[in-house]
Write a protein that binds this DNA or RNA. Sequence first.
RNA 1: GCCGGGAUGGCGGAACUGGUAGACGCGCCGGACUCAAAAUCCGGUUCUGGCAACAGAGUGAGAGUUCGAUUCUCUCUCCCGGCACCA
Length: 816
Amino acid sequence: MNSPYHPDKVEQRAQSFWRESRSFEVTEEPDKEKFYCLTMFPYPSGKLHMGHVRVFTISDVIARYQRMQGKHVLQPMGWDAFGMPAENAAIQRGVPPAQWTYRNIQDMRVQMQRLGYAYDWTREIATCRPEYYRWEQWLFTRMFRRGLVYRKNSVVNWDPVDQTVLANEQVIEGRGWRSNALVERREIPQWFMKITAYADELLDELDRMPGWPEPVKTMQRNWIGRSEGLELEFPVEGTDESLEVFTTRPDTLMGVTYMAVAAEHPLAVRVAKHDPAIAAFIDECRKSDAAEATLQTMEKKGMPLGIAAIHPLSGEKVPLWVANFVLMSYGTGAVMAVPGHDERDWEFANKHGLPIVQVIAPEDGTDIDIEAGAFVEHGILVNSGEYDGLNFDAACDAIARHFEETGRGRRTVNYRLRDWGISRQRYWGAPIPIVYCEDCDAVPVPDDQLPVVLPEDVEFTGVGSPLKDMPEFLETPCPGCGRPARRETDTFDTFVESSWYFARYACPDSDRAMLDSRAAYWMPVDQYTGGIEHAILHLLYSRFFQRVMRDEGLSETSEPFTNLLTQGMVLKDGAKMSKAKGNTVDPQELIEKYGADTVRLFMIFTAPPEQALEWSDEGVQGSFRFLKRFWNSVQMHAQSGPAAPVDHDSLGAAQRDLRRKTHQTIAKISDDIGRRYTFNTAVAAAMELLNSVNRFEDRSAAGQSVVQEALEAIVLTLSPIVPHICHALWEALGHESALIDEPWPKTDDRALEQELIEIVVQVNGKLRGRISVAADADDAAVREAALGDANVQRFVDGRAIRKTIVVPGRLVNVVV
RNA sequence: GCCGGGAUGGCGGAACUGGUAGACGCGCCGGACUCAAAAUCCGGUUCUGGCAACAGAGUGAGAGUUCGAUUCUCUCUCCCGGCACCA
């Protein structure tokens, strides 16, 4: 009697089995080869979305595959639980952020469990719990001692109406999202972590990370942006001050015709005091948000400051401008402008009638018209006095030597990478463990007073941090001198929590240390999977934190993630699925209708993991149909009772063909999952094999044996992707032991042997025929067979054969 | 603006190392089953011409390298991601 496919029953049974046998709970076993498989943990937004389902499924496939390879697999799950959405929910619905967050975690955990992921739930982490953030507060105080954190002024988006700091996301076309007021840039004191101290190491190590995708490494290299150049001083006319600038093109120095400083630069601020026009311009420059994309796409504006710098080589006066495209936070807040050889400088000079001078000529001696556009390539120096005739390297060297000798400049290395500002003027985050004392200044909270616990029972209005109105939080004796002092009310950037959680999964219950010896067993993460949108920030911060933990003696690992898989977005109608865009599809409905396996299969089959996946409702039904067909085929086969093991030597031709297909499929799926990470083609191969089985009508005992072998291969190889149905079908195929502990199937070389192969014949690169030849035929025999083909002869037709290319086992190309 | 990625039938995708373009699936068309429909099963399906055999065209656009290019090089267009306070 065939039972129809009921996914909910099948899935509940499999999940109860895994739960009762604690299949996915692991402890350290030093004699076993470990495999740490990790997914970027989710923000508990309320419900799972398709992006979650995709990344979790991809990771689960890898975890289950590695388990079948005999590895001791850890796959944990947790919650990146601090962040803005909880505050927004609090404002909109009056629920305290903590309550909202914990409820979301509960809901999402239930949804995840319904999807059957192989997680060790005993290691679950939520970053908003004091037991967790206690240790990042602790690490922060260590970094404070080592000089790796410091305080300085830096720019935020200021909403002048709501009197609050806005995230870049909360600025819509230059206006506050709620007040609609024009956003201003404002400088406030904030805490920074010295990621630049690790810039060289973070950069150099990228060359030794073969398990990371090349594009991600390139993006990180460019983000760090190491550049060698010259730092030099331009004296300011009529003062004893000088303006420091950095350039990667010292060879163009004689082409400097003006200089520009940022609106926040002290020199500009000073001029503004007695020049209302400049003051107005600076005010104007501040009316913008702080995002780099905004600043770089803004119309380039500037005003002359009416003072000049002295060119350090020529002694000539160079006018000083204040400009909106120079950033105070990057470099020295001042730049030298060479309009002849820099496109941005050229456009600005052209617009404001500033002189454009050619000082570099093309090496091949061609003439260029510097008035028509900047010449930005390297070349030979001209109009540069004693440096004329030198090439790029020689000129840079000679000019650098001149500055080093005069002491007015030095060769230096500059980074695009800036230190990490970790202060947030928000409530729902981990408190920065600092106490401000009038006498002792900023004092880190001592170990025995950690954690600084964030009060969870608050009324959150959205106007400022509620911590500022809580004397019981604010007021505390100074840890240094004991006199009354006040706590820092800013909280950590939520990227801080996500920069070390991967190590904490190894020892989530450790209350004596941030990490213990268990971390040494599990770290580094063998396979990390997450969105490509995290290619720079999260991954770079994590690499930085891992090194800080290493240097603190907590770990011997430098690189946290050995292999990285960046999965593409889930798109609908060409746009990323997101709540903000309102184009989400709820996974829950689909799971209820078709089951977890169908949703998992669809996610895996529809696109390769790294590519964007375009959502389609119809595709889900196709996945469901396949599972039904799979189910029915196994049930039908199992009806006729147990099949004997295959006896290869006694098989007929058709039986051998199916058996060959089985073993080709095992080989292909092993390669697709284990090496190529193209899980979609693995599914396609399994579908092909099932199609072959369904067309195979041989009911003899030997036929049944071959079918049994084929169906077992499909069950085993698809089990990482659709584990529930495979759990049930393995039983149906007559096995008493559970599928979850089965090893990955092996190919039988004898089954793969083939006597005749098909060769494609081309004439002048165009397909003209197919021939069947012996698998071991030599080139001459293949060539002869190719020329004997009737259609090939028609196209050769007596013309002279210029050459014949034979690609063994593939094709013959006859060139006439 | 800068950095990274992408573009292949009506649709999602496949073609792994330069060697049969379109595997597998969706959709559509035709057929079987059915009183009928759904479900299921079988067959067809890049476009153009042809009853067919077959021929011509074809992988965002344009050029180049090669016996041979979806694959390599150059130029361009459009789309996606990131740009340091969304996570």
